[in-house]
Amino acid sequence: MASARAHRLRSALGLFLLAPLIGEFLLGNQPITALPSVFLLAPLYGGGALLVRETARRAGRGWPTMILLGAAYALVEEGPVDQMLWNPHYGGFDLGAAYAGARVPLLDTSVQLLQDVLTLHTVWSVCVPIALVEAFARDGDRSRPWLGLPGLSAAVLVFTAGSGFLALAQVESEDFVATPAQFAAAGVLIAALITAAFLCRRPGARHPAGRTPPAPWVVGVLSFAATSAYWGREYLPDGVPAAVPVLGWALLVAVVLVPCVRWARGEGWTGAHRLGLAGGALLTYAWVGFEQVRYLDVSRATGLLGNAVFATGALVLLAAAARAGACGRVRPRPLSDAASGTTMAPRVVK
C-alpha cells in the first residue's frame, strides 16, 4: 500500500515538472540557461495539468473531459493570467500585426491567436505530459486519481498562488490590463468549456464493431505529420489571406479528431495508441524548438545546445514510456478449467 501511494505521488510530481519542461523549454521559448525557472513555471503549467488530470479521473471521466479541461486551462493561462489574448505588444512582439485577421466578437481577440492558444496548451501543455506520465503508471493507476483530498487541495493552492503571482508579474512587466468585458467574456467561455467537459460520457465498454486502429507506430507517425503540418503555417508566403491558416486549422483538427474518435471506440485501441499520439506531438516540439532559437536572448550556440539537450531528453523519455507501457501490458493466455477441460478466453485489461 505504501509503495503504491509513493508511486502515485511520484507520478503526480513527474507531471508537475514535465508540463513546463515541454510547454516552455522543449518548445524553445526558454533557453537552457533559464532552466531554474522551471520551478517558477511549474505551479501554473504543472499545477494546471495535474488539476486537469486529477479532476477528470476523480470524476471517473476520460480523455474527452481532459481535452476540454485542457482547453479551459489554455484560456485561463493566456487570458486572465498573462493576457496575451488581448495584449497587442505582448512580450515585445507586435502581435497586433501578426494576428490582424478576423476577430472573435465575444472575446475581442484574433481568431488565429485563439486557435494557437487552444492548440499549444491543450495539446502540449496538458495532454502530452499527462499521456506520457500515465504511460509509466501502473495499470490500476492510469485511470484513478493520484492525489487524495489533502494533495488535491495543495495542488489547487499552488496553482492559484502561482497563477496569481505570474498575473501580477505580467501586469507590471507588460504595463497592460484588459478590459472588464474581456475578462468577463473569458470567464464565460472557460465556464462553458468546464461544463461541457463534465457532460461527456463516462468511459464505457469498447464496441466490438468499432473501427480497428492501425498499429501504434502508425498513429505516432500520423500525429507527428499532423502536428508538424500545424506548425507549417510559419512557412506560408507573405500575402496569403488570413482565412487560409484559420480554415486550415479547422480542417486539420477534423482530420485528426474524426478517425481518432472512431478508433478509440473500438476494442483495439490501447494505451500504446495514446502514447503514439502523444509521442508524435512530442517529437514535433523537438524540431520546432530548433526553429525558435532566433527568438531567444542568448547566443545561437547556447540556444542550439539547449534545444539538443531538451530534444534528446524527449527522445529518451518517449523510449522509456514505450518500454514501460510494453512491460506493463498483460499478455493474454488461455485459462484452463480443470473441472471441465475447457479453455476460457482471457480477461483483457485496458
Rank of each mutant, 00 (worst) to 15 (best):
A264N: 08
P245Y: 11
L247I: 15
P214H: 00
G289V: 01
A272R: 08
L282C: 09
E291C: 07
A281Q: 08
L251Q: 02
D297Y: 06
V240K: 05
A205W: 07
G306K: 06
V309S: 04
A254V: 13
Y285F: 15
A286N: 10
E234H: 14
L251H: 00
L305T: 12
C260P: 08
Y235I: 14
V256G: 00
L236R: 00
T270H: 01
P203D: 02
A250G: 02
G280C: 04
V244F: 08
A308Y: 05
V240R: 06
A205P: 11
Y235N: 12
F224W: 13
L282D: 02
W249M: 11
V219D: 08
L247D: 07
G303L: 11
L304W: 06
F198W: 04
V261D: 05
N307M: 15
Q292M: 14
T302Q: 13
V246D: 13
L257A: 15
P214Y: 04
C260I: 13
L282R: 00
R233W: 14
P214I: 09
A205S: 13
G248A: 12
A250I: 15
A264G: 09
F290R: 09
V253W: 14
T227S: 13
G280S: 04
L257Y: 12
P203T: 04
P203R: 01
P213V: 11
P241N: 06
A254L: 15
L251K: 02
G303P: 01
Y285N: 00
W217S: 10
W249N: 12
G268R: 06
A254E: 09
Q292R: 15
A250T: 09
L304I: 12
S299T: 15
L277C: 09
F310Q: 11
V218Y: 12
R262H: 11
Y230P: 11
R211A: 12
V219I: 15
P208G: 06
R262W: 03
V253P: 06
G303D: 03
G279N: 02
A281R: 03
G289K: 07
Y235K: 11
P216C: 07
W287M: 00
A243M: 12
V293T: 12
N307G: 14
G220V: 09
G268P: 07
L282Q: 00
G303M: 05
S299H: 07
A215E: 05
A209W: 11
L257G: 10
V256Y: 04
T212L: 07
P245K: 02
S228Y: 07
A254F: 13
L283R: 01
W249V: 06
L305P: 10
D238T: 13
P213C: 02
G280P: 08
R262C: 03
F198M: 11
V298E: 01
